[in-house]
Write a protein that binds this DNA or RNA. Structure first.
Lengths: 151, 151
DNA sequence: TTGCGTGCAAAGGTTTTGCATGGCA
DNA sequence: TGCCATGCAAAACCTTTGCACGCAA
């Protein structure tokens, strides 16, 4: 957890995530992309690097589906996304940055009533976005790729 | 998914969940309990049965942490409680099962104002619990059984 | 008897870990 | 030169699946 080195693997992973900032990316996506791009990279490196970026706040980790594994998404500068909540659509993967008064009150309520200090930086509210709610054909397990996949 | 039989395995699992309705029970908890109780039951049966109970609405499945696996909780009547949220303390790991009116309103607010249907089964609110806020002692890993029940 | 439920073991997938090597600063 | 990062493979983990047998109705 001390100084960190800039390696070509880290650069490649961060670039890939930045270019796909409007999607959610799985660890296996990174692995596949690197292999297809001819960039030699072990699986362990991918996981270790993704975890590090999460700690740094550069990317975010989402657990959309318990079976598929975690998704990662670039969020840019760490400070920018610390003040509001995030809604994650489990259908299309869209990430909604939500800062509204109500949720600030929620934070206050949970602290006042339950003594719990909410960390909006780490909290993700999962659900289904408006578009996917409409488009949804009431199918049980809609594949995430079948919906409004932004980009 | 036609007619169903009442077997002693199903009865045992449902009893166990009912007795621990105020906790989060993992599939492995069920397996361990059965083994300790001398009730012979295979892992596959546990998973298959839990899934079936979920479909029937008798129990509810929560995904709190990708590593720990899913949690299950007895809810009794299917329609009863829809707005259970989880607060997870990032310091001690304690999982707080929170169902209060305010959060139900939050769910409604997000739907009304933002068109987003919140999934309380997947959403976990992270932060620091009351005890950890006061005593900054960091325990390693408190299990889910130390579940404060709010309201 | 019928066919759902069960147990066992193996397989499936994602993620982690150990250890020697490689590479940034 | 120090240390961190990497790669490889094995391991760990939760969960699912296949198949023969058991058991409720």
């Amino acid at each position: 957890m001390k100084n960190e080195y800039t390696t070509k693997q880290r650069t490649a992973i961060l670039d890939f995530l930045r270019e796909n900032a409007d999607r959610h990316v799985k660890a296996s996506d990174v692995v596949n992309y690197m292999r297809e791009s001819g960039i030699k990279m072990g699986t362990a490196t991918v996981y270790r690097t993704l975890e590090k970026f999460c700690d740094e706040g550069l990317i975010r980790k989402f657990i959309v589906d318990e079976h598929t594994g975690a998704c990662y998404q670039f969020v840019g500068t760490p400070a920018a996304c610390h003040s509001h909540f995030h809604l994650k659509c489990t259908e299309c993967g869209k990430l909604i940055h939500l800062s509204c008064e109500f949720l600030e009150n929620m934070e206050k309520h949970i602290y006042d009533e339950h003594g719990f200090t909410v960390s909006s930086a780490k909290t993700v509210i999962y659900g289904v976005c408006a578009e996917c709610s409409h488009t949804q054909v009431k199918k049980e397990h809609a594949d995430a790729s079948s919906c409004c996949h932004a980009k």
